[in-house]
């Protein structure tokens, strides 16, 4: 088995890669485990226009490739593997992956988040047959169709706007009386003639034989039901943290996010968390970066105290 690394970072999204840049520059031997492709959940969006330093916007793919390159430039090793379990304590941790074991003195959990499902009848059965969680991926299959988006945050508003490029109409469904997303997106949604907004409304079922044909909706204010014929439903109702492999190992909050202290430490000394998986990070690339950097700096302090 290899010598233990100074730090193992789990996840190569914005938080993990930012941590890897700082760990590498701190001359820590650094391994980053990534189960898919470096970039993470942000790769699901089409365009980033609120990341500082890019006044005309940037594609998530380009931005994340640059992060990756910068992390590798400073010596971080990015390996393609998925963390399945973690064991050990203070200064000696072992992460088990599909392809091997990774030993490290400190760990940064930066596994990010995955999209949330609505949990209504028909949703799972019709996923890939009209139900989608990625407007960028699947929007073009709905050219000239009537579709719906459910959600009220930044991402739901962005997806609705993006989908107007293809769809004939987009019905934006949100359970609350107002949207949570950035005001600039709210203004664009209001100004877009293709988007119809249904507030205080929830999706009860997704109907269709082989593909999506309609939705059953319920107005939560007056408790009336209605049917909305659509051929697509894009679900954008937030994310859930990816904490399967650390459940029981360190403390999570009621949302399954890793509880962290001000220096990004978890309940287990030597294990830190950053980005969407932590309870300290609004779901933004810039805050993921900030917490990732902070975690890497805290690891350096922790290792200095160990030795």
């Amino acid at each position: 088995m290899d010598e233990p690394r100074h730090v193992a970072i789990v996840g190569a999204g914005p938080a993990g890669l930012a941590a890897a840049i700082y760990a590498g520059r701190g001359r820590l031997s650094t391994v980053v485990l990534e189960k898919g492709m470096p970039g993470g959940q942000i790769l699901l969006t089409d365009w980033i226009e609120n990341y500082p330093g890019f006044p005309t916007g940037v594609t998530p793919f380009d931005l994340m490739q640059a992060f990756r390159k910068q992390a590798e430039t400073f010596g971080a090793e990015i390996v393609s593997d998925e963390a399945l379990a973690i064991a050990g304590s203070d200064g000696a941790f072992v992460i088990r992956g599909h392809n091997g074991e990774y030993r490290a003195r400190a760990v940064i959990v930066a596994t990010g988040s995955a999209y949330r499902r609505l949990g209504v009848p028909g949703e799972e059965r019709l996923t890939g047959a009209g139900v989608s969680y990625c407007a960028v991926c699947d929007g073009s299959f709905f050219a000239g169709r009537d579709i719906a988006v459910v959600g009220g945050g930044d991402n739901a508003l962005k997806e609705a706007l993006f989908l107007t490029r293809f769809a004939e109409t987009v019905t934006l469904i949100h359970r609350r009386a107002g949207f949570r997303g950035e005001r600039i997106y709210q203004e664009r949604v209001a100004a877009n003639a293709k988007i119809r907004v249904l507030l205080e409304t929830v999706v009860c079922t997704v109907e269709g034989q082989a593909k999506v044909e309609s939705l059953t909706l319920r107005n939560v204010k007056d408790d009336t039901s209605s049917t909305l014929p659509v051929s697509g439903l894009f679900i954008s109702i937030g994310t859930r943290p990816r904490t399967e492999f650390i459940k029981g190992f360190l403390e999570l909050d009621e949302w399954d996010q890793v509880k962290v202290g001000g220096d990004m430490r978890s309940s287990v000394p030597g294990v830190f968390a950053a980005g969407d998986v932590s309870d300290a990070c609004p779901k933004q690339v810039a805050t993921a970066v900030g917490t990732g950097v902070h975690a890497a700096l805290s690891v350096q302090e922790y290792l200095a105290r160990l030795s």
């Binding site: 898919g36 492709m37 970039g39 790769l43 699901l44 793919f61 990625c134 960028v136 991926c137």
Partner: peptide
């Protein structure tokens, strides 16, 4: 253009 396609490709 599909992010998850790029994730699953490797």
């Amino acid at each position: 253009w599909c992010g998850p396609c790029r994730m699953i490709a490797p």
